[in-house]
Design a protein around this nucleic acid. Sequence first.
DNA 1: CAAATATAATAGTATTACTATCTGTTTTGC
DNA 2: GCAAAACAGATAGTAATACTATTATATTTG
Lengths: 222, 222
Amino acid sequence: MKNIQLHIEVNPDLYLKNPDSTDLGKKIISNSVKLINDIGFDNFTFKKLGIQIESPESSIYRYFENKHALLIYLVSWYWSWVEYLLVFSTVNIDSPSEKLNRSIKVLTGPTLEKYPTTYMNEELLSQIIITESVKAYHTKNVDDENKKGYFKTYKKVVQRVSDLVLEVNSGYKFPNMLVSTVIEGVHQQKYFAEHLPALTDVTKGKDSIAKFYTNMVNTIMV
Amino acid sequence: MKNIQLHIEVNPDLYLKNPDSTDLGKKIISNSVKLINDIGFDNFTFKKLGIQIESPESSIYRYFENKHALLIYLVSWYWSWVEYLLVFSTVNIDSPSEKLNRSIKVLTGPTLEKYPTTYMNEELLSQIIITESVKAYHTKNVDDENKKGYFKTYKKVVQRVSDLVLEVNSGYKFPNMLVSTVIEGVHQQKYFAEHLPALTDVTKGKDSIAKFYTNMVNTIMV
DNA sequence: CAAATATAATAGTATTACTATCTGTTTTGC
DNA sequence: GCAAAACAGATAGTAATACTATTATATTTG
């Protein structure tokens, strides 16, 4: 076993003060997840969050430079959590293809597991990822932020699953493209199912998204 | 031939006054495409656009309710243009599978064709779609705006290609999912190739994105 | 040529996205 | 047990954003 991470880790450059280290910090995280879900990231402000947690916005600014940094923090936390789930779902499994199957299941399926932390609501966070995460990297500063390592936890997840793809079929030419297409596609289709059903096939059953992408991996790789 | 549209058409609810009908309107469109490309949609304001075209922002507000409506207008224009390209690339072709092939080529490939309009820069517009179009429908108002028909031109494109998928394989279960996955995937991978190359496989050649998705359609449908 | 339509010019408002400073209260390190 | 450091609260202030409103003036059209 090499390089396995058993705890959530986000790049310290993403915050001014670690929100995990204080009560107020944890309140900021848990309430921002709720508030972003309620009103959407575009309408979300530190002022409104401050009112919700009964703290001045200036206190929130001591933890995060701005709301964009907070969003990237949440996205980063999410992918670190997904990596944790991937590790656990594949540990002690020998067969690469079985490991890949289980990984795809983690990426496509509904995950009800929790990370042992009281202040993070993973279900609401997953919802934020589906709805808002594209805004984390569709900005004029992506390149800068990428250089600073802001998207490392996402890239690690893609890397991990891509490596499994290559273990199963070492000749496959586009492992990263396949994996990022599946990951983004699953989120996208879940969003479409809820808001733009004409772009998807929801009537074909609740698990059709998982079916579609699982089938895609299996047929494309051989 | 039924239901074929030979001109660009956007939902009139998207604008207060048709920008196509006046000089100022055309200036607003062509310069917004340039400015959004330069500074990004998030930093784009009607004030800055007004400075660029040397008109007060209040004049721009007579055409569009706000910058979000303008973005949806551009996205809508783009998909109407893509439909026009799809129609032309498949007209007079009898074989459904050849029609599908040509359609996928339009969706994946670089398109250098222009629509006969002087004021629209299709290349810059395509760039905006890749970078900013997700912001058009990842909002708290999607459902409302969808009801008003703001995303109709996009849905029509997906519908058109999905119908071809079913013509080739009438038993295929997820035509919409397949097509929207390809369309969104192509844009996404182009964005990744430029900004987050770890999520894609750009080193495998410039046309690897087109190859990957073309192969995906061919292998998944059989 | 009058009426309608268009743009320009200017002003003003509420909200957003911060920054700065100052005051207390805890925590910690010796 | 006490001083220093760290932390949160309170308040104020600024520039930019996202508009709305009004009036004046130029252009088009019936």
